[in-house]
Simulated assay, not measured.
Amino acid sequence: MKNYFLFSIKETPSIASAYAPEETPLAHELIQQIDQSDELPFELELFKLSSGKTGLMKSTYLADLQNIWLDYQPNSLAWPLFSERLKEIFSRNLSGLEGLDWIKVRINGNDEQRVYFIPRFERKLDVIDENKTKYITGTDRIIVPHFSSIKIDKLAVFHKPQAHDFWKITPELYVSDDLKKAIQKERIKGVSFEKVIVV
């Protein structure tokens, strides 16, 4: 049986994070607004985030960070935000059954602008083993997903079912072992892989 992994950002004490403008709607509201668009209608700005004794601190001072432009850029929307390099790794490894497209995002920081990409699913994928998945009693909200090996066999990346259209753009991206190896081969840093349950 193939292995699959939850793909996410590795947490660090200090990091550059891309922030949407103050008046931006909440991420789940924004999904509907950009549903037919291939570009985010606003630009993001980089800030330094660091953990301190009083909690999370936000600063415009980026000079003491080793690298502000990350392949998987943290951001205020809590969406996956990929460099062109990471987007290309994903694109090269897709089977075509994932229904993935990309939203272009412009990020400003350190007196330059770079283009990043948000992966978006065009259709809701059927990936769960309903009998073994654990739900909140009386709801369809998943506590512990159990993915069906038959349903995900030909997918390089997928999402778990979520209410409304939250599955379209989600921070919970699951990747195949082959895609994981491709990401590691290209020495993408600052990311982590957590093995998930496949039945």
Score class of each variant (00 low, 15 high):
4 Y>A: 12
7 F>D: 09
7 F>V: 08
9 I>M: 10
16 A>M: 07
24 T>M: 01
24 T>Q: 01
24 T>W: 00
25 P>S: 02
27 A>Q: 11
28 H>A: 03
28 H>G: 01
29 E>A: 03
30 L>G: 00
30 L>H: 04
37 S>Y: 03
38 D>T: 14
40 L>M: 03
42 F>Q: 00
43 E>T: 00
46 L>M: 00
51 S>M: 13
52 G>I: 02
53 K>C: 05
54 T>V: 05
57 M>N: 15
57 M>V: 14
58 K>N: 04
65 L>C: 01
66 Q>L: 03
67 N>F: 02
73 Q>S: 00
84 E>P: 05
87 K>C: 08
88 E>Q: 14
89 I>W: 08
89 I>P: 08
90 F>A: 05
90 F>Q: 01
92 R>N: 13
98 E>I: 08
98 E>M: 09
103 I>M: 03
104 K>C: 02
107 I>N: 00
107 I>A: 00
116 Y>H: 04
123 R>E: 05
125 L>A: 13
126 D>Y: 06
131 N>V: 07
133 T>G: 10
134 K>V: 15
135 Y>T: 04
135 Y>I: 05
135 Y>M: 04
135 Y>P: 03
137 T>S: 09
138 G>E: 06
139 T>P: 12
143 I>G: 08
145 P>E: 11
145 P>V: 02
147 F>N: 05
147 F>L: 15
158 F>W: 11
160 K>N: 08
161 P>E: 08
163 A>I: 06
165 D>A: 04
166 F>D: 09
167 W>G: 06
168 K>L: 04
171 P>A: 03
174 Y>S: 06
175 V>Q: 08
178 D>M: 09
178 D>C: 10
179 L>V: 06
181 K>M: 10
184 Q>H: 06
185 K>T: 15
185 K>S: 15
186 E>L: 03
186 E>K: 15
187 R>D: 13
188 I>P: 04
196 V>N: 05
198 V>W: 10
199 V>M: 07
199 V>N: 12
